[in-house]
C-alpha cells in the first residue's frame, strides 16, 4: 500500500509541477469566490452510435500543452502585435457596454447573432437545420487570454491560453452541430 502511494505520488508530482505557474497565484488561492475550471467536458453525440462524454481534467490539458513541441507551445503571430493595444481597448469598451445584440443577420436559411449577455460575448451561427455553432466567450476568459500574447517574441503562448481557461465560468463554451453530429465543450 505504501509503495503504491509512492508510485502514485511520483506519477502525480510532475503533472502538478508542470501545471504550477510561479507567475500566477495557485488555483487554491486565486479567485476564492469563483470556483476555477477543473474539468473540460467534451460531449460528442453522433448521428448514429453511442453518445460519448469525455471529462478531461484541466491539469491533464496543462500538462499536455507543457509537454507539446515548441511550435505548439509558442505560435508565432507577428501580425497581431500592432493591434494588441486596440484589442485591449475594444475589450475594455465591450466590457463596459450594457448587454445587447451587436449584430444580427437573418437570411432565408441563415441566422447569425453576436451579442453580449451575462458577462460573455455569445456568437450563434445557424445555417439551415443541420449546422449550428454556438460559442460563449466569457469576458473573464478573454481578459485572461490577453496575457497569452508575448510582445517580445510576437507569439501566442498556448500554455497561457490554457491557463486562461481556468478562469472561465462553469458552463458551455462551444456547441457545434454539423449534420447529425453534435459536439459540446463545457468548462466544469
Amino acid at each position: 500500500m505504501k509503495s503504491f502511494a509512492i508510485v502514485a505520488a511520483a506519477l502525480t508530482l510532475p503533472l502538478v509541477l508542470l501545471a504550477a505557474d510561479p507567475a500566477q497565484p495557485s488555483a487554491l488561492t486565486a479567485h476564492p469566490a469563483q470556483p476555477s475550471t477543473s474539468v473540460l467536458v467534451v460531449e460528442v453525440t453522433p448521428e448514429h452510435g453511442p453518445r460519448l462524454v469525455i471529462p478531461v481534467p484541466y491539469i491533464v490539458v496543462r500538462a499536455g500543452v507543457a509537454l507539446a513541441p515548441r511550435h505548439i507551445r509558442q505560435i508565432p503571430v507577428p501580425g497581431l502585435a500592432p493591434h494588441m493595444d486596440d484589442l485591449h481597448r475594444a475589450l475594455a469598451t465591450l466590457q463596459d457596454t450594457p448587454d445587447g445584440v451587436f449584430v444580427e443577420i437573418e437570411g432565408p436559411d441563415e441566422h447569425v447573432v453576436v451579442e453580449k449577455r451575462d458577462g460573455a460575448l455569445r456568437v450563434v451561427v445557424l445555417d439551415g437545420d443541420h449546422t449550428r455553432v454556438q460559442a460563449v466567450l466569457p469576458f473573464s476568459l478573454l481578459a485572461s487570454a490577453r496575457n497569452a500574447f508575448d510582445g517580445e517574441t510576437t507569439s501566442l503562448h498556448t500554455g497561457a491560453l490554457v491557463r486562461a481557461l481556468r478562469d472561465a465560468p462553469r458552463g458551455p463554451l462551444v456547441h457545434l452541430l454539423d449534420g447529425g453530429t453534435e459536439v459540446e465543450i463545457r468548462a466544469w
Binding site: 481597448r89 451587436f102 449584430v103 443577420i105 437570411g107
Partner: peptide, 25 residues
C-alpha cells in the same frame, strides 16, 4: 424583403477604435 435582414448596434466607442485601427493600419 424575403432575402436578408442585417441589424447592427455598435457602441460608438467601438466604432472609434475601429476607425482608429483603419486609419493607422
Amino acid at each position: 424583403p424575403g432575402e436578408t435582414r442585417v441589424s447592427m448596434n455598435l457602441p460608438l466607442a467601438l466604432v472609434e477604435i475601429g476607425l482608429d485601427m483603419a486609419d493607422r493600419h
